[in-house]
């Protein structure tokens, strides 16, 4: 217990230091934009940050990406990060609203202070409540529904949805959307949740998916929501001798997933274009600060469906501009 406590103290202290160091003066010439979003260990957020950096550079803004280093205490760490960022009085604050109940008071306080606030990636349901300018990202339920419809069209009826971030409402909604669509096809989906420590452990993910397949012989569809899980889901289907009988779909683009799509192991990829979420957020923030202009309503970057038919162009881009599409 002691170790955990000291670890947290250190992590919070480090976070606070990194948040205060380099606190810049707010200025209209070079607006300071802080983005609070997911950890870069996940290639998805890596692509999002790349978009944010490129967007900030294009708008000649000072873009600063801040994130959590682990998921041990994810909700309060994120809240603290929002508070620390707001206390630096940036011109704009972009936040991924992953845990609305925990994070909304802090985001609301920031926008009430007069900081231009944008909700990015997650928070489609909540961006208006916290006084944000706009929401840029996916409609998670629509992503899930699109996945379910695709899966049903390919013959799936009973699915499992692999949720690798326990307690994240957006991922739960994707699973719910998948379930809805499969129910319409006369089946349904069950969600399996990875424990927080095992989220990035490929072996644990592989054995979990394999176990879920063994536990229910009816299962003929899998939806994965992270790139680690996509690769091992394909392996799990091979290991249980159900190749060709299980329709695997994914909502997170990675080079491995694209290659699997081309090889036919993966039936479809539903992309929410993380790079665009980062890029647009930086552009909207800078344009609002500089020119007082902003989009009305939400900007949706997904669901974009990638299948065998249009994968080649995506692969070309991935090869030429590494990291924009996700993992290498």
């Amino acid at each position: 217990m002691k170790i955990i406590k000291i670890g947290l103290l250190l992590a919070v202290a480090l976070g606070a230091i990194s948040a205060t160091v380099g606190a810049a003066q707010a200025s209209q010439d070079k607006p300071v934009i802080i983005m609070v979003s997911g950890p870069l260990g996940d290639p998805f957020f890596s692509a999002l940050k790349k978009g944010f950096d490129d967007g900030a550079a294009a708008m000649k803004a000072d873009g600063q990406y801040s994130t959590i280093s682990n998921f041990d205490n994810v909700q309060s760490d994120l809240v603290h990060l929002v508070e620390a960022s707001a206390s630096r009085h940036p011109d704009a604050l972009i936040v991924g609203d992953f845990f609305p109940d925990a994070m909304n008071p802090a985001i609301k306080a920031a926008s009430a202070q007069g900081i231009a606030t944008i909700i990015d990636n997650t928070g489609e349901q909540t961006w208006q409540d916290v006084g944000a300018l706009t929401y840029i990202g996916e409609d998670p339920r629509a992503m899930g529904a699109a996945s379910g419809e695709r899966a049903a069209k390919a013959g799936a009826k009973f699915g499992i949805c692999v949720n690798h971030v326990a307690g994240n409402p957006a991922l739960e909604q994707r699973c719910a959307g998948y379930d809805d669509a499969l129910k319409k096809a006369g089946g349904g989906a069950k969600m399996i949740t990875m424990s927080t420590q095992d989220m990035q452990n490929p072996q644990a993910n592989l054995q979990a998916i394999k176990g879920a397949l063994q536990a229910d012989p009816k299962v003929n569809g899998i939806l994965t929501l992270g790139s680690t899980q996509t690769a091992v889901a394909i392996q799990a289907v091979k290991d249980t001798d159900r190749q060709g009988k299980v329709v695997i779909g994914a909502t997170d683009v990675s080079s491995t997933a694209l290659a699997a799509l081309k090889a036919g192991d993966l039936a479809f990829l539903i992309d929410q274009q993380a790079y665009l979420q980062g890029f647009y957020a930086a552009v909207v923030a800078a344009q609002y600060v500089k020119f007082d202009l902003h989009p009305i309503g939400e900007i949706h970057t997904g669901p974009l469906v990638i299948t065998k038919d249009n994968v080649d162009r995506v692969l070309e881009v991935d090869k030429e501009y590494g990291g924009i599409r996700g993992a290498q």
Partner: peptide
């Protein structure tokens, strides 16, 4: 931090096949 930093510096991402 070093692992993340170097991999992002060299490849723009943190997963390399």
């Amino acid at each position: 931090g070093a692992g993340l930093g170097f991999s992002r510096l060299l490849t723009n991402t943190t997963t390399v096949s």
